[in-house]
Design a protein around this nucleic acid. Structure first.
Length: 446
RNA sequence: GAGGAUGUAGCUCAGCUGGUUAGAGCGCCAGAUUGUGGCUCUGGAGGUCGCGGGUUCGAUUCCCGUCAUUCUCCCCA
């Protein structure tokens, strides 16, 4: 006998869980479509050549690689000591996708002739990372991405802010949306005389919420920034957005970044958000492919890290031979949104219930045969119906209805078949009535 | 990659400084109620104490190893 198990960091979803997850996905999907995004899907596996080198050194390590079929050892040169990475590249040509952005870039290039720019796509699919699982972190998890590719306009950024606002409003989950611009951070790096260390600075600043100002200072010291630069960065972190122009006055990039954020705000001037939108100079985001505006969403009532993020990237398709295309996108962290909503009790009561509204409980096979056309009649009236498949004791069948939270049970035996009147039991009140099918239907469809 | 914690019934866990038939709650099954769920009562089933080795007269308990799970850091969603 094999002890049943699933791989580390993966999950089965129970009906209760999946009904709640789908509630979130449905709202996100509907909102994407309301903003004119169209769906695509890409394969779970991509060629490793598509994925490798796109997520940094550590990213390559975190890719799940798929062993070639057939006699994969035939190709391998084991005559001398080899780096395992080299061997891996000889025996694996495919890998599971790590995110939805790179496959999308690949998709755009491959389908360039059938795509009309600007192209607005959304994609809700699982991704895989060979990471060590932790609380709220899995090896298989879903991403919900929407990107606009082929437009430089900051109206896209503004609309994405409205999209975030709409989704979290519908989920009744209060959030703070932060916006900043990579060029502002670049301006900071220039201003403190460390342009070449931009990514060190952004990864350090990114931890501000987690480790505090002293933690950031320490992080910067470990990354060997000059003391003077560190002092000025600490000074920067205290600034409000309004104070940035003075601080970044000598950086063309910095001024450009401020202008971009301001313009996004201008686009939103006459469509106020229901949630908080703040320009936050301290917002960094680790990913290095962002080049313009960057966003992050946090739940305001719970400390749980970000539940969404995104930004503008230039030239994402460049590595696939299609340079000069700019895009901007956002992502929803479905797993964390779920956790927050669960903790705050935001899932509507009715989605946690079973789908069936009526159960037919039959005494014997004759009653079951009698029930079949009645069940169909109810179903055609739009009512979800189950017929209990075994002619066992009514006690047993009522117990089943009780556990599945099915609100109505039709008890069917010789008496009902003779009279043509159905015995309908309301499982909440325990009361029973004798009804014709028509009366039952009209009662349930009121 | 580094460090910690935990593995006992289907689930959540108790089990004293090592001691003879390893317990509880919940769940499950049956009955009280042969055409009626929840509540109650009665009875019942269910355990290689993760696995391997060691110490001992004796190990669920102590030691070592191993596997699994989980948490923190790194990184990320």
């Amino acid at each position: 006998m094999v002890k049943p198990s699933i791989p580390k960091g993966t999950r089965d979803f129970t009906p209760e869980t999946l009904l709640k997850r789908n509630y979130i996905f449905d709202i996100i999907r509907q909102t994407f479509e309301r903003f004119g995004f169209v769906p695509i899907e890409t394969p779970a596996m991509e060629n490793l050549s598509t994925l490798m080198g796109k997520y940094g050194e550590e990213g390559d390590q975190l890719l799940f690689k798929i062993l070639n079929s057939g006699d994969f050892l035939k190709q391998v040169d084991l005559s001398q000591d080899q780096d395992y990475r080299k061997v891996a590249s000889q025996i694996c040509e495919k890998g599971l996708r790590y995110d939805l952005t790179i496959p999308f870039a690949r998709y755009v290039v491959m389908h360039r002739h059938e795509i009309t720019l600007p192209f607005k796509r959304y994609q809700i699919q699982p991704v895989w990372r060979a990471d060590r699982p932790q609380k709220g972190r899995y090896r298989e998890f879903y991403q919900c991405d929407a990107d606009v590719i082929g437009s430089d306009s900051l109206l896209c950024e503004a609309e994405l802010m409205l999209l975030y606002d709409e989704v979290f409003t519908r989920l009744q989950l209060p959030v703070r949306i932060k916006i900043n611009n990579r060029k502002i951070l670049q301006g900071l790096a220039e201003t403190v005389g460390c342009s070449s260390m931009l990514s060190d600075i952004t990864t350090a600043i990114d931890k501000l919420d987690k480790v505090g100002t002293e933690g950031v200072r320490q992080e910067l010291q470990e990354r060997f920034l000059p003391q003077e630069a560190i002092d000025r960065i600490m000074q920067y972190l205290q600034l409000s957005f309004a104070e940035l122009p003075a601080f970044l006055a000598n950086s063309a990039a910095g001024i450009q970044g401020i202008a971009e954020v301001t313009q996004v705000m201008d686009f939103l001037a006459s469509t106020p958000l229901k949630n908080e939108l703040v320009a936050d100079p301290a917002l960094a985001r680790g990913l290095n492919y962002y080049t313009g505006c960057i966003f992050e969403v946090q739940a305001t009532q719970l400390q749980i890290g970000s539940i969404g993020g995104g930004g503008r990237y230039d030239n994402l398709t460049g590595t696939f031979g299609m340079p000069g295309i700019s895009g901007v996108g956002i992502s929803f962290g479905a797993e964390r949104i779920y956790d927050v909503m669960e903790q705050m009790g935001l899932f509507p009561e009715k989605i946690t219930k079973t789908s069936a509204v009526v159960l037919f409980a039959c005494f014997d096979v004759a009653a079951q045969r009698f029930a079949m056309p009645l069940a169909q009649q109810l179903r055609h009236a739009g009512i979800s119906v189950e017929v209990y498949p075994e002619p066992v004791k009514i006690k047993k069948q009522l117990e089943y209805a009780d556990r599945r939270a099915i609100p109505h049970v039709v008890i069917l035996g010789s008496e009902e078949m003779a009279s043509g009147l159905l015995t309908v039991k309301n499982m909440q009140t325990g009361q029973q009535q004798q009804l014709t099918v028509e009366a039952l239907i009209s009662q349930l469809t009121e």
